[in-house]
Simulated scan of single mutants.
Amino acid sequence: MARLPIFGHWTTNYDRLIETSLKNVGKIVDVKYNTKHLANTIHGRNAILYKMHGDVENPDEAIISKDQYEKYFHTHGAYINTLSGDLVSKTFLFIGFSFTDPNLDYILSRIRVTYENNQRKHYCFIREVKNETNDTDEDFELKKIKQELIINDLLRFNIHVLLIQEYSEITEILKEIENRFKRKTIYISGSANEYGKWSTAMAEDFISTLSQELTKNDFKIVSGFGLGVGSSVISGVLKEIYINRKENIKNQLLLRPFPQGGAEIQKQWNDYRKDMISYSGISIFIFGNKVDNGKLVSANGVESEFEISKEQNSLLIPIGATGYKSRELWQKVLNNYEVYFGSSENIELFKELGNEKLEPNELIKLTLQFINKIIKK
């Protein structure tokens, strides 16, 4: 959940699990557990956590007794207004929430009366009732009827229930949401001291046009500024953003040049690659060569990025027709296509990515076609 692009979080828990998770993925969290915090803003925040009932390290301010619940509207009126605003303007996903909090029930009722058929759509997870060992048939039937009534009641507030069999399914659902979100971001891996049968101008135009077309298709691009590749990636994205779309480049390009230095810096490159690739759900590999001790060799850095992408469950697309390390990786994927893509569907398209007779523009169209096919799948 912390890795998803969610800015606002609400909880009635006192523990610090949510803010710890958000910080662990590098987010700057603005935690608010009393009304005074609502007037303050942490600079550079990219996540906000409202702790409606207080914080474990500040028990004197915690909402825990029935008397405190009853007085909540008077003592925490600003929280009520803030939550009401979010429920009106944002989509909520309720996780592990029983809907027995009287304050939330009152807020939802007011919103329903005010907005009637124009309420924001929300979702929640509820585990389907089970027929326990000691249950009679009547007990189980009663539990099912009670759950059905709860589900129908939540629909009054436009809260749609997602029934699950086990709580572990929530993790799997969130992982799938994360995968789908990340697959709108593509990492382009590659380096090139030379381009083989392609002229420098042809190769640079291929990389630039590929990046431009990916941007045109609403993909965000991540690049590590590889030798002979990075500058062309940037030019392609810039061309689409500034000439055709006129939007902020931050929305479409994440550029992470590798830190330069001695052996100590290079030891950190693996962690740096992991962080960089973690933003994407698709990795494209092109070319992949470098000069080592005066000899042209395959780029081991491109292979490292392939393995990291695989570990992070990214879709792997080596464009074998560009040669060098990318061709080796293309052959590796082709030999085990069903392992990498789950079935043999679209394998013929993938084979064509290794066709060295294709013109650069044909290769770009084929790459986009393949990406769109596997994303829809």
Score class of each variant (00 low, 15 high):
E213A: 03
E213S: 06
E213L: 04
E213P: 00
L214N: 08
T215M: 03
K216C: 01
K216P: 03
K216Q: 09
N217P: 07
D218C: 06
D218Q: 12
D218R: 09
F219E: 02
K220H: 00
K220T: 05
K220Q: 07
K220Y: 00
I221A: 11
I221G: 01
I221Q: 01
I221H: 06
V222E: 06
V222G: 05
V222P: 05
V222K: 03
V222I: 15
V222D: 04
S223Y: 10
S223Q: 00
G224R: 06
F225Y: 12
F225M: 15
G226P: 06
G226R: 02
G226A: 04
G226M: 02
L227F: 04
L227N: 09
L227V: 08
L227P: 00
G228R: 06
G228C: 13
G228L: 07
G228D: 13
V229L: 12
V229S: 03
V229E: 10
V229K: 02
G230L: 09
G230I: 08
S231W: 01
S231F: 09
S231D: 07
S231A: 09
S231N: 05
S231Y: 03
S232Q: 11
S232G: 06
V233D: 05
V233Y: 00
I234Y: 14
S235H: 04
S235Y: 10
G236P: 02
G236T: 04
V237I: 12
V237S: 06
V237H: 02
V237N: 03
V237P: 04
L238A: 14
L238G: 10
K239Y: 11
K239F: 07
E240K: 03
E240N: 02
E240F: 00
I241R: 07
I241H: 07
Y242F: 11
Y242T: 05
I243T: 14
I243H: 10
I243N: 10
I243Y: 13
I243Q: 11
N244S: 14
E247F: 00
E247P: 00
N248Q: 09
I249H: 05
K250N: 15
K250H: 13
K250F: 13
K250E: 15
N251K: 13
N251Y: 15
N251D: 15
Q252E: 02
Q252W: 10
L253Q: 08
L253T: 00
L253A: 00
L254T: 09
L254W: 07
L255Y: 12
L255N: 07
L255Q: 13
R256F: 13
P257N: 11
P257Q: 05
F258P: 00
F258N: 04
F258V: 08
P259H: 01
P259F: 14
P259V: 06
Q260T: 14
Q260D: 04
Q260P: 01
Q260L: 11
G261Q: 07
G262R: 04
G262H: 06
A263C: 02
A263D: 10
A263H: 11
A263N: 15
A263P: 11
A263R: 13
I265Y: 11
Q266W: 07
Q266S: 14
K267F: 04
K267V: 08
K267Q: 15
Q268V: 04
Q268E: 15
W269S: 07
W269N: 13
N270P: 03
N270M: 13
N270K: 12
N270A: 12
Y272G: 05
Y272H: 04
Y272M: 08
Y272D: 05
R273N: 15
K274R: 15
K274V: 01
K274Q: 14
K274M: 08
D275F: 09
D275S: 12
M276H: 08
M276W: 14
I277Q: 06
I277F: 03
